[in-house]
Structure formats: structure tokens, C-alpha cells
């Protein structure tokens, strides 16, 4: 009874807050793309400045590259923290995985998934996608492996040390490009001018493709580490 009362009261309060918020938000003026604001500037001169066809990538890895650096640092810290919280000495012992047919089918499909991941990473400045999305696709391959082939398969192929190596390699690529920006262009994370090529080709847009590759490896390896540390305990009861 008491609980029901509490529920009703909270619901009433939440409805009231929702109503007030709705009143406020309905006063928002219609968004007109801010004729004098940032977006107008980016749409006009984003292609000239960065050489990247995809303006979102231009924002993420060139104009606001520092934010992306901070974001990948957040993932780095989260991985470090999760490993710290869940560190167990237990070595993973595998389940047997799914049936033979599924294993075969996935064996044929995996290269294509990986190809798609690499495509998304490397074409970040030309088509939708980029380092983060492609990196997560690469991590998903690792997750699928653990489901289909049993959890030890991926572990044996790419040990946590290898993944950590990939992760820090990506992070160091990013940082190195930032420092190269200081040396060559005079500002941290400035786009490297000498790498610019004809717009629309694969290797264009200055340092953006390289940053994308670094971020992709970093995010992929980091998220795979998170997943593997989280499933480590289930290994013992599989057997």
C-alpha cells in the first residue's frame, strides 16, 4: 500500500515536471540552421578547410579533434577501470560453441565483416562512418567469435596483450599526429597540410584518414577487452 502511494506520488510529480518541460520546450523557436552560426560556416567552407567530404568527420577529427582525443581517453580509462574492477586470475576455459554449420558459415562471412569494418574506418572522410563506428564493428567480430567458436578461440588468437598493444598503438597514432601538428603546422592536432591530396580520393583530407585508423584500432581493441573481461567469469561454469 505504502509502495503504491509512493509510486502514484512520483508519477504525479514526474507528470508535472514533464508538463512544465513541455511548456518550456514548445517555446523554442523553430531551428533555422543558424544563418550566422557555426553550422553555416562549416557547410560553406568545411570542404575547403579540411578536404573531407563528410562534414561530420571534418568536425570530429579536424575542427574538434581535441574532443575526439578526450573521448578516446575516456574509453581508455573505462577499459582500464573495468579491468581493474574485474581482474581475475582465472584463465578462460572455452565452451564448445555452436554447431558445425554455423561455424563454417561464419568462417566464410568473417572476412567480409572485417572488410566492411575496414571500409567504414578508411572511408570515414568520404562516406558515413569513421573510426568509432568501424572500430565497434571490429570489436563485434571478436564478440561473434566468442559466441560461435567458444570463448577461448579468440583469446588464443589475439591475447589480451595483443589487444592492449593495438589499443595503445591507436592512441599513440592519435597523439603522434597531434604532436606532428605542433611541429609542422604550429598548433596541436592541426591538420597536416602536406598530406592533402585531390579531394574525393581515398588518401586525401590531410591527417584525417590516419586519425581514423588510429581511433578505429583503439576503439575496437578497447571494446573487445571490455567484453572479454566481462565474460571471464562465465567460463568456469561452462565446463
Amino acid at each position: 500500500m505504502n509502495k503504491l502511494m509512493k509510486k502514484i506520488m512520483i508519477s504525479v510529480v514526474l507528470t508535472g515536471v514533464a508538463f512544465a518541460l513541455y511548456q518550456n520546450f514548445s517555446l523554442m523557436p523553430e531551428y533555422q540552421g543558424l544563418n550566422e552560426g557555426l553550422s553555416n560556416y562549416i557547410i560553406k567552407s568545411g570542404l575547403n578547410d579540411t578536404g573531407s567530404l563528410n562534414l561530420i568527420t571534418a568536425v570530429l577529427y579536424d575542427y574538434r579533434a581535441f574532443d575526439s582525443l578526450g573521448e578516446s581517453t575516456v574509453i581508455f580509462g573505462a577499459v582500464s577501470g573495468i579491468v581493474l574492477i574485474l581482474s581475475r586470475k582465472m584463465l578462460p576455459v572455452s565452451s564448445k560453441g555452436l554447431s558445425f554449420i554455423v561455424k563454417r558459415a561464419l568462417g566464410i562471412m568473417t572476412p567480409f565483416i572485417a572488410l566492411f569494418g575496414f571500409y567504414v574506418i578508411t572511408h570515414g572522410h568520404l562516406t558515413p562512418g569513421g573510426g568509432f563506428q568501424g572500430g565497434v564493428i571490429l570489436a563485434a567480430i571478436s564478440i561473434i567469435f566468442s559466441i560461435v567458436y567458444g570463448s577461448a578461440f579468440d583469446y588464443r588468437r589475439y591475447s589480451p596483450q595483443t589487444k592492449t598493444l593495438f589499443e595503445t598503438g591507436g592512441a599513440l597514432t592519435f597523439l603522434g599526429l597531434g604532436l606532428a601538428g605542433i611541429l609542422m603546422e604550429g598548433a596541436f592536432l592541426q591538420n597536416l597540410g602536406f598530406l592533402t591530396a585531390e579531394t574525393g580520393t581515398l588518401i586525401s583530407a590531410g591527417s584525417i584518414p590516419y586519425i581514423n585508423i588510429g581511433v578505429g584500432f583503439k576503439v575496437g581493441a578497447g571494446l573487445a577487452i571490455i567484453f572479454y573481461s566481462m565474460i571471464q567469469k562465465t567460463f568456469e561454469e561452462d565446463f
Partner: peptide, 18 residues
């Protein structure tokens, strides 16, 4: 507008890690 989309992308990744 590409800017809010970029901010949202950052937010999604942070949300996943939290």
C-alpha cells in the same frame, strides 16, 4: 547541421562506456 550530430556521436560513445 553537422555540429549537433558530431556532439551526439561523442555522447553515444561516452554513454556506451559508462
Amino acid at each position: 547541421d553537422p555540429v549537433p550530430q558530431a556532439l551526439t556521436l561523442t555522447g553515444i560513445v561516452i554513454g556506451a562506456s559508462t
